[in-house]
Amino acid sequence: MSARGALLRLEQLEVVYQKVVTAIQGVSLEVAEGQIVALLGSNGAGKTTTLRAITGFLGVDDARVTDGRVWFEGRSIENQPPQLVAHQGIAIVPERQKVFETLTVTENLEATVPGAGTTRAEQRRRVERVFEHFPRLHAARRRLAGYLSGGERQMLAIGAALLCTPRLLLVDELSQGLAPRIVENLLERLVELRKELGLTVLLVEQSAHVALQVADHGYILENGRVVLDGTPQRLREHKDVQEFYLGQAGGGERRSYRDVKQYRRSRRWYG
């Protein structure tokens, strides 16, 4: 991928929690304008940390980008406060605590600060559009978000993130808590939105099936490092990916858990 056209570029990123815990190290990746890029990895690989490094930390997080750069539209934005990052056009659907539980569904949407120059009427129209896409939310619009189901929360979080009129949308575990059909729908919506609004998406997923279905490019994160990247085609063909992310046996029968650990270890040492 060429550096030109990259909307977002991470350069040798390193994030340290509580001044001692290094969560990711030397992570480099690129997301070109209009692309959907998948970031895959098992639990604790550093996917959430990577997204958080892009959207910025608060003082209480006690986390910092200690090395490397985050380039967005040619500006370096690492260690900026989250609201400034949001104003530059990056929205996130977080992994946890993704809605304001003490606010109603409608209030959740209204609290969102739209992109600069959005009129009140325009904003109201957008809220209506979110309700059109997610009729379940419309039915629950007066309820407190704290009483929503996991899937409904996910819909609300995606709706609210889109109301920020982002140029880049970060989604931490899109399929979390959602019925397979809804996930299909959402993925279709994302592809549509990309065409419609020129939206660019960085998708974190546990399920490689889901992510590789729509992605233009994929990265695989292990123990805080990028160990593999390529087109979905190439990733799907890769033996390790088939085995550990697509749940297929690498040729013949499925290997045991010990082999998985072995794989992890080898990744840690040689990846």
Binding site: T55, G56, L58, D61, P81, P82, Q83, V85, A86, H87, A91, I92, P94, Q97, K98, V99, F100, E101, T102, L103, E107, N108, A111, T112, V113, P114, A160, A161, C164
Partner: peptide
Amino acid sequence: RAVGENPLLAAQRGIK
């Protein structure tokens, strides 16, 4: 109210 409940999420939604 949003800031009071979850400042991080509020900031990510662009609230100053």
